[in-house]
């Protein structure tokens, strides 16, 4: 049961991500991405990271992708006239390269990892993550905060009507 859900979700994730490659309408692409992200959140949950699953939905799907959609709506982009990748001539080389890269990654992963002895999923509680965040990684949290602030200021500056 558990495995079925996992592999189904994984298939949904990959298919949805793959759909971005072939759709014309940016809104549809964004929605496929949202689906992929939601499925990924479920994968996180199944892998035993409930906090990250919730954060994935809240931040990625709930905030970032809404921004994305918002922008597309404001620009009122209609389906692109661009030739779909599979119709245009130059899709073979990138696809081939990507395939090779994937295979190489697989070789890399399988070369590096011994299969674990016990394969039970341990759920890592939000509390543990929080303690790790505000314990050894406190400095990085601060840095992330500064990064966000910097991004905020940058966006405010860029979106002003009259720039310096």
């Amino acid at each position: 049961m558990y495995e079925i859900i996992f592999y189904l979700t994984a298939a949904v994730t990959v298919l949805a991500a793959g759909s971005i490659l072939i759709v014309r309408n940016p809104i549809h692409a964004a929605l496929y991405l949202v689906i992929a992200l939601l499925a990924l959140a479920l994968l996180f949950f199944l892998l035993g990271a409930p906090l990250l699953a919730a954060l994935q939905v809240m931040i990625y799907a709930g905030a970032i992708m809404v921004l994305f959609l918002f922008l597309i709506m404001v620009m009122n982009l209609r389906p692109t006239q661009e030739q779909l990748p599979f119709l245009s001539a130059g899709w073979k080389v990138p696809a081939f390269l990507a395939l090779i890269l994937w295979l190489e990654l697989l070789v890399l992963f399988f070369g590096l990892l011994p299969e674990p002895a016990d394969e039970t999923i341990t759920v890592i509680e939000p509390k543990v993550v929080g303690e790790s965040l505000f314990g050894p990684y406190l400095l990085v949290v601060e840095a992330a905060a500064i990064l966000l602030l910097a991004a905020l200021i940058a966006v405010l500056y860029l979106s002003r009507k009259k720039r310096l």
Binding site: P50, A54, A61, V66
Partner: peptide, 25 residues
């Protein structure tokens, strides 16, 4: 009773906007 219930609720409420946005679009 899941241990991230509150986050679950928040996450779902953040998904709600899609219905309205997409309906409008």
């Amino acid at each position: 009773d899941i241990n991230i219930a509150l986050l679950f609720v928040l996450a779902l409420s953040s998904l709600r906007v899609y219905g309205i946005m997409l309906g409008g679009w």
